[in-house]
Design a protein around this nucleic acid. Sequence first.
RNA 1: GCCGCCAUGGUCAAGCGGUUAAGACGUCGCCCUCUCACGGCGAAAACCGGGGUUCGAGUCCCCGUGGCGGUACCA
Length: 493
Amino acid sequence: MEVRTRFAPSPTGYMHLGNLRTALYTYLYARRNGGKFILRIEDTDQKREVEGALDVIYKSLATAGLTHDEGPDVGGPCGPYIQSQRRDTYRPWAEKLIASGHAYYCFCTEERLGQARAEAEKKGENFKYDKHCLHLSKEEIQAKLDAGEPYVIRQNIPTEGKAGFDDLIYGRVEVDCDTLDDNVLLKADGLPTYNFANVVDDHLMGITHVMRGNEYLSSAPKYNLLYEALGWEPPKYVHLTPVMVEVPGTDEEGNPITVKRKMSKRKGDPSFEDLLAQGYLTEAIINYLALLGWSPKGEREFFTLKELEENFDLDGLSKSPSVFDQAKLNWFNAEYIRKLSPERYLELATPWLAQVLDPARFDFKRLGELLQGRTEVFNQLPGMVKFLAELPEYPLEFFANKKQKSTPESAKAALEFVKPVLEGIEDWTEANLHDTVMAKIPETGMKNGQVLWPLRIAISGQQSTPGGAFEIAYLLGREETLRRLEKAMERLD
RNA sequence: GCCGCCAUGGUCAAGCGGUUAAGACGUCGCCCUCUCACGGCGAAAACCGGGGUUCGAGUCCCCGUGGCGGUACCA
């Protein structure tokens, strides 16, 4: 049988990384097995509608390269693929459940339920709907229906026995039915809840493998009850762990500790589009995410999407939550940046450089060559090069460097030596700068570092720079280099 | 509280009854070197605790602890 998987996000307006990873695994499983990957939008909560949220989903998936075979935008034989546009498809199934005694009308008001919930909470008990409306007579129900009273349809969970399901990575999961609540299947507004919509749609869309977040692990037994009641074969389940972040927090006594929590855009954790905007490469994000919660067979850790499609397997999936590690993502990103062609790198780096540097004044191409091996994330670039635009204020102590045997005194001598040498260079190329200065250093009896360290400090104002003294001097140009040199010498007097 | 899931270095993780318990990121040291970065070499660093089962347990079972999730007319 053909494998059919689905990614079924709610349109929240952003793609958080846990979701993206779920989408990735779901996509990979379908591709690996020559199956179909379907996009379905779960927007049955009208209160949560967000403008433009659909586009974010399409755009994120397209950017990530997770192309779907069926979905709202591309169509397919099981449409519509937006749940709010399928509202009429759920009711008949709910009514069928009522007919067979697996569901029932409920006319309880929000007030009554709220009170019952509050009371249960006060007593420290778990709230469960008391099946009040299950015991209504046929006539009572009809009368209320005729009177147009608002109602919902609830699942009638057995009061005893066990319910369970089989998960491909967790194995058999079973719970006592009496711990389960009679959840609402169809809401007063006529739309289904997730509890019902996912079952109906997964069946109707022929989904063979349900891959989704761990948060559904506890409710999956209920869904299987529904499949049984409807006489449908349940899909294979694969529950995926959440992506966590570690943040500073406090323990019960108020001591600072690091706490883990689920990644959340609302709490300020970066979404996929945030990462992209910061200068992370899609390939790096995907590669990192793939390995966060899944491990391939061998020792390899660099995978293109295509390679992931060929290598993905379920038994590499982890059962416990994984912590998002920005440092490792940075490393992946840096590695991917290094693999870029110089042209591509320059193309991507230019907008960031142009934030602080005038492209007409600086050799961006040369800058790119210097920067490519030093770039972890593109948003670091402006901070790395802005010293070229304007000499930062720096303390004279910068001229002291033990390893280079440089002191403010030796620096003064070094600069006095190097200035006329530089002034003598008409053809301001890097090679010329290098060869001319290097040829003369031996005459002074100073070590290379004793000359080059202070020179670089003088013209950059920074202890570390992307490139050495000659590269910086070249980039600055003859005039600016000499100007900065003179300024340093005045200060050293 | 109740229910479910999970538990190997700081992080991601391999391991699926017998290993010197992989590897990667990060950290630290050394080398390269005009700084930084890259690269090379090396180091520190883990089986949550307690009971079983077994000749033998990180691996299987139970209990505890901890983490995560659920407990909605949200998904």
